[in-house]
Design a protein around this nucleic acid. Structure first.
Lengths: 367, 367
DNA sequence: TTGTATGCGTTATCAA
DNA sequence: TTGATAACGCATACAA
């Protein structure tokens, strides 16, 4: 593949019979160039198909336009996740500001921090995005200490005022699910969650509990709280056990769609028809939920992606070369270009939304 | 975030009291430097935490170490996909050669080609990876014409000798599934696939058909071939219809796990117990298959990722700066660094593997 | 063995 | 309004 050498500023300048600086001016300060000169230069730019060299631009500006993202394999046992949606949302959100994601792999949180710091020091990335941040996540403090700009999706239990984060209001999600189920007539609403060392799992449990209390159902639901691994098998076991005790739940709220699928399975084993005999609400609205007609709580991931990217642009104090000709990326959505230097976005905590499907749409059974 | 200015070659040189060239030599030609000098320089490199600036290196070498990858959202209706595994495999495969993926989004194949060409022209990427290549995919010829180096996962129906590709032997996968089912005693083995305009779907159907013929079951299976959309609902409908006709299948081979889940649902509607009354084998071994104890055909994605990356390195004729100190990325797995300039790998067509789970493990029912 | 000079493509500063 | 010069950080050819 010969890959004909790309034309440079100098080539354009030579073709147009001007100095390279004039070409640069045409791109960056068009009003300082006489209209006729500009026009001729622009013609040659188009004719030669000139595109500024990003690498040279970044070197010159001493600022990368890459954002680091550690990609992890799906947790074993889990059914699905929303990482791909998040990744897509981030990539899409970066488009307008000409930012791109740089993927890297690492074997653990420490290695991730190490990698991120290396990439940052070597000018490979301007900053990184963290996701699945847990209660005692070591990454935020470590990155803070190493001076690596970052924005977190999710947050630790403490010191959340020391770094920028965006999060989804998980309790409000499970609370909305409880409200919905109570409205349908349910009174014994179980919760299937995952262990309390994970921020997200705990918060989702809290939302359930708070809503149950608010509806005065604390006593009815006291023994209907189970926690275990985030796998289908664990979810099925927990649900099976709850269904077997006296005063079994007529509805389940789960911390993940994976667990919800486990509940589906347990219900089937008990000979219960989901949607008629028992209601189930999952969390995350993964494709699995849609395919199985399972109600689920949907995180506004696209919005999270936009907020994370906006915050990151702010954190990296970017001064992107504002070229007229797109600097070698894809044409951004027109009209959204100027936003990225706005002050840090006001909404850190975004609200999820309950998607009601047949698994929870019917009135509660009379039992 | 002050992000203390990174030390440069010059800083190290000044600290060590040598010229910057000596420092460069320590990194690139250590044997040309007197041991004691080298040692001192290395000490200062470590002390200052010096790391070469990737941007400057890439500019100098006029060669990016980024590989473009268009990330697409999951197809609506689909349950799961193996894209995340592929993405992770690629990222992991690039690590040893210090290559990273650059994610971009685009609205269609044409836009993808346009984007890729732009990124290439501007030095943003050395080449791109294509996936989900269909029979009449416009991307390979278009990229070829525009001189953008690329490697495809999957291949078009024609002109496959004009560009580098890696693919999985899809027919052998479905054939293996048929063999397995025949071995279990099944004779009426249905196929649930997706429309023939997609290379992969067609190839998977061919494997089923060929194996059925080979076992002399053509007549028995003649009317057991259904094609539709790749969704759970479509899969359920097709399977339901096949199960309702005279001489219904006792086993199903499907083109995707999504369709297999549909078959599961149809079986349930007919009151059949999967694994006892009817066998099902899916394709792709997604987490869904594992969670539902569904037999499935697993593509060797990790291997595909390695082969694609190796081929791409070859295609981009890379001469990566072979530094001693890792050039600002993560430490590669030691011992795998030197492979990337080996001649194009011999294996283009990789063989998938049948994972047997309870959905197909039992002997065929006597009907 | 070590150092000097030059250039990669771009942009900022300043002079013409 | 335009052009010459310098610099970003690195690496190569060549000279000392």
């Amino acid at each position: 593949m010969p890959a004909a050498a790309q034309p440079t500023l100098v080539d354009v300048a030579a073709a147009a019979g001007v100095s390279r600086q004039t070409v640069s001016n045409v791109l960056h300060a068009p009003d300082r160039v006489r209209p006729e000169t500009r026009e001729r230069v622009e013609r040659f730019i188009a004719e030669l198909g000139y595109q500024p060299n990003r690498v040279a631009q970044d070197l010159r500006a001493n600022a990368s336009r890459m954002i680091g993202y550690r990609i992890r394999p799906l947790a074993p046992g889990a059914l699905a996740s929303i990482h791909d949606r998040f990744l897509h949302a981030l990539a899409e959100a970066g488009r307008a500001a000409d930012r791109h994601l740089l993927l890297f792999t690492a074997d653990g949180p420490e290695a991730e921090v190490e990698c991120a710091a290396r990439l940052r020091r070597s000018g490979g990335v301007a900053g990184v995005v963290l996701y699945d941040v847990t209660a005692s996540d070591p990454r935020p403090p470590a990155l803070l200490e190493r001076g690596v700009p970052f924005v977190a999706f999710g947050r630790t239990a403490e010191a959340t005022d020391r770094y920028p984060w965006i999060d989804v209001d998980n309790p409000s999600g499970t609370a909305a699910a409880v409200d919905h189920l109570v409205h349908r007539g349910h009174r014994r609403i179980g919760f299937i969650g995952w262990p309390p060392d994970d921020t997200i799992g705990t918060r989702r449990a809290q939302g359930w509990q708070a809503a149950v209390e608010r509806h005065g159902l604390t006593a009815a639901c006291r023994s209907l709280d189970a926690r275990g691994e985030d796998t289908v098998a664990a979810g099925a076991e927990m649900a099976y056990a709850l269904l077997g005790q006296p005063g079994p739940p007529t509805a389940f709220v789960t911390a993940t769609d994976t667990l919800a699928v486990g509940v589906l399975r347990a219900a089937q084993q008990w000979g219960l028809e989901v949607g008629r005999d028992v209601a189930v609400v999952g969390f995350d609205d993964t494709p699995t939920a849609a395919a199985l007609d399972l109600s689920s709580i949907r995180q506004p991931i696209e919005l999270v992606g936009r907020q994370v990217m906006a915050t990151l642009l702010h954190a990296t104090a970017a001064t992107p070369p504002a070229t007229t000709v797109p600097a070698g990326s894809c044409p951004p959505d027109p009209g959204t270009v100027a936003h990225h230097l706005a002050p840090a976005p006001p909404e850190q905590l975004l609200t999820p939304r309950l998607i009601i499907r047949s698994s929870s749409a019917s009135p509660a059974p009379r039992r």
